[in-house]
Design a binder for these strands. Structure first.
Lengths: 148, 148
DNA sequence: CTCCCACCTGGAGTGCACTCCAGGTCAAAC
DNA sequence: GTTTGACCTGGAGTGCACTCCAGGTGGGAG
């Protein structure tokens, strides 16, 4: 229904105008309409394709793979391949989130260490450097002081 | 307690030897011991610091900020700053995960579309191109064929 | 008519985080 | 005694994904 200038599209899609041009150049966007004076005119379909691209990029899919996906998307009868590609990616995203959570919990644990160092600090604060992680647990702090 | 060669440290930490050298060069690692012939000898404390670095990098903290953190970690009495830095990062990680989940659900939705296209396909398979996202919903498919 | 602004193009430049390389050292294996 | 392999250094090179730039066009405002 709608048609959108490059600036509007950039705003709506979250990609910069330069990125939109770049995506068109490398083939992630094809069949973008032009008006009489050669300017790009984006459609609602372009917008939703861009939204999809944003999800893929935002979840860490490399450009090369997005390119493969968009090539598939241009060819009828490739639904199985597209499905497979997205499913594989979805699994990677799942792993990515799991790893993130794991690493985040390590960080939260460290935050807890610092938190109790601050509250219990008045009494306990010596020159502690940082007590590199397990250092705070296994008592190697003295040898550690000065690095963190 | 233990002491580790660069190769062992690379294996245990998950950073390449080159990255370890690089990290030492830019100041993320300081006070790494050397043996008589000038080779690096990593300690358990170094390992756990590396583990921390891995969590920070792995959750998307830029090198520059890790550098700031490691500088703080060398100075006693900076626990409050370190705490603040990690908390701010933790919030970003939370947002990152939320965004990832949101984008993932969009991808899963698309997977669902493809899934039902495949199962219900025998009857319904026309030249559909891709049905760019909402295209599959709002009926613009015909106009969309050939892009995806 | 002139100015400005949003846009166009091809191509060069950027930032980040490594990664690789050439040339050299040392200790242990053969 | 020489070969091997893991390591050292400074510095150059890489890959990715943009981002910027110079020079140019077309349409509407003043």
């Amino acid at each position: 229904m709608g048609s959108y200038s490059p600036a509007e599209t950039a705003e709506k899609s979250g990609f910069s105008i330069d990125t939109l041009r770049y995506y068109e150049k490398i083939g992630l966007l094809s069949g973008i309409a032009r008006n009489a004076s050669g300017r790009r005119v984006f459609s609602d379909d372009d917008l939703s394709w861009l939204e999809m691209l944003r999800c893929l990029r935002g979840t860490g899919m490399p450009i090369a793979e997005m390119l493969r996906y968009s090539e598939l998307a241009r060819v009828p009868g490739t639904v199985a391949e597209r499905l497979e590609l997205l499913q594989a990616h979805d699994r990677r995203v799942e792993e990515q989130i799991a790893l993130l959570r794991e690493q985040q919990s390590r960080i939260k644990w460290k935050i807890g260490i610092y938190g109790s160092a601050l509250t219990g600090a008045c009494a306990a604060q010596r020159d502690e450097g940082d007590l590199a992680a397990t250092g705070a647990v296994n008592g190697t702090a003295a040898a550690t002081a000065g690095r963190g």
